[in-house]
Design a binder for these strands. Structure first.
Lengths: 185, 185, 185, 185
DNA sequence: TATGAATGAGTCTTCATTCAT
DNA sequence: CATGAATGAAGACTCATTCAT
């Protein structure tokens, strides 16, 4: 593993633990065992480390969410999408932190935010198709998308809270609640 | 308005704009036009400013969410709670920022977080009562609460996004989706 | 003497010895025995230290050069102006360094350069009057001014060169050469 | 053009624009498109680049100033020397910058400065001969030399000042002033 | 109650240079 | 000849905090 990867990996871990702003370069340097100048040899900026990390993480995002979606069954599709997203966030805490901070943090340039946004397109298509098939009531698709997304996020937050033990049945309840909200009747 | 209030107000605005970590004391001092030492005369340290601010905001929280809740009609209660929370966040962006950042920020001591948590108690009671009345299916109350809360947050985020125009009909759709998810059948 | 003055004085000495770019803030801090933050309490910038210093020095400039100029005798006026400028530079090495570096260095903002330029106005007036009185040949006044100035600078440079002993007779020769160049015949 | 020449040329341009101290190796590397290590392959260190550059430039100096000097006419010799020097500086801004910065820059080792100094020998000889021929008054030759040099420099500075349009007649006036100063009567 | 001078640890970044390939 | 990874000291500047007035 080359120094650049080490820096990225270390930064990933630190940000996951502490958030973006709380993670200083000196910390990254100390933790990664890499020299000061080496970091700047590979990255123009502190921002560039984060940007690169962000790109690495969001690259997966698009494919991961739509993985293993079955052909016809809208309900099954829903469950799997939901769980894909849930597991993605659970396994990629930084991606989760990022996705939570995106809206507000000026650290992430707008261009990147827009790029992330495009991954939602497939989720949007799913809901539009569901409306056409009369499975879902014809709600505004942005609202549906955002609520779907928010539901997953809510449960991930419970999962993250160390004091609470999130069980599979809770997850299934959440999926059920989420699903019922969108239905036609 | 005395100096202390000026400092609090300025901090409120800065944090709303930039987040907690991005807001430095020097910025607060510069922006508020108050002297260096004056801030430390009124507050022990930076954390105390934030803590005090947080207490001010969460104090409202409890009462605001349960304001104007009608007696019997569970559905009407739901709508009003939902809108109370929505408007509270829209009108108190800092409260919103806080509630979003609370989970992760080490800046907010756990004791305070717990205190905020207790305001949820009434929401929890509402859901438990709904289950008893057989209006809601008997889901885990923490899950219900968190999803309810998350739904409001999702819509506030849309509202905050400058590029999107959130209409009343969108809000009503969101409430409907939110409500349907919890129902018994 | 307060810390601010100490910083200014120290910077003055260091720049005189080493030039602007060679003088680092850490050096100023070390040499002046003042804390890092203290410098930044009094000055916004490294640049601001230099600017302030520059203003202090050039303030004298205007009055010094025209000091003790006798009424009518154009030749005597010339000698005294010449010597005033010479001694000013010899006694204010930083002013000399500055006046030499002004033309090129981007460290000095244009606004300051312009301000310094206005002090030349009196020298310009002197030459114009000399032309009117038919003492001087009617050369372009900017050329006269610049050559006059340059002559003084040349001799100051000899004076500064540690290996050479500049005698009064050399100075007088220089004044004579300088004077003769401008004469009518 | 080989890499070494590219580095020298780039450095030349950067120093001309910004001065010696303001020009960093990283800038040279970035600007010249040459690799980090390549620079150190050709030069021992940063100082060596500057030294080599300096030698290239001053090599010309000696021959250029004395080019096309006619045999007997002392006045014509003066004009041509003056203009040779003027045009040399105008066409070699770096040589000009160097000659201005030499006195103070610790970047240029004394040995080199001395070497440059020897080119002045011919100018010195010219003035000494002029004194012997009773054309010039018997001033100290170092003073004469320095004033002659300084006069050219003053006019080059006017020429460099973007805000002023230097005309041929100004140059001729300057030569005349310069010449008259040294004359016997 | 209010001020602002003073502090020094810590921030990000640039620098000239070395070394293995 | 040429490359670029790696280094750590040094650069300017920001930060939260203390203290005397």
């Amino acid at each position: 593993m080359n120094k650049k990867s080490i820096v990225l990996q270390t930064t990933l871990e630190l940000i996951t633990k502490q958030g973006i702003r709380a993670t200083s370069l000196s910390q990254i340097i100390k933790e990664s065992g890499v020299a000061n100048g080496t970091v700047y040899h590979h990255f123009k900026n502190k921002e560039e480390i984060i940007t690169e990390l962000y790109l690495m993480l969001t690259q997966d995002f698009g494919t991961v969410v739509m993985r293993n979606i079955p052909e016809d069954d809208v309900k099954k599709q829903f469950s799997i999408m939901w769980l894909n997203l849930f597991h993605y966030f659970v396994n990629n805490p930084l991606a989760f932190v990022f996705s939570e901070q995106i809206a507000r943090s000026p650290e992430i340039p707008q261009s990147l935010k827009d790029k992330a946004r495009q991954y939602y397109a497939e989720i949007e298509n799913y809901f539009k198709a569901g409306i056409r098939k009369k499975t879902f009531k014809s709600y505004n698709s942005m609202v549906m998308e955002e609520l779907f997304f928010g539901n997953v996020v809510s449960i991930v937050k419970i999962h993250e809270n160390e004091k609470v033990k999130l069980l599979d049945k809770h997850i299934n309840q959440a999926i059920e609640i989420s699903w019922k909200g969108f239905l036609r009747d």
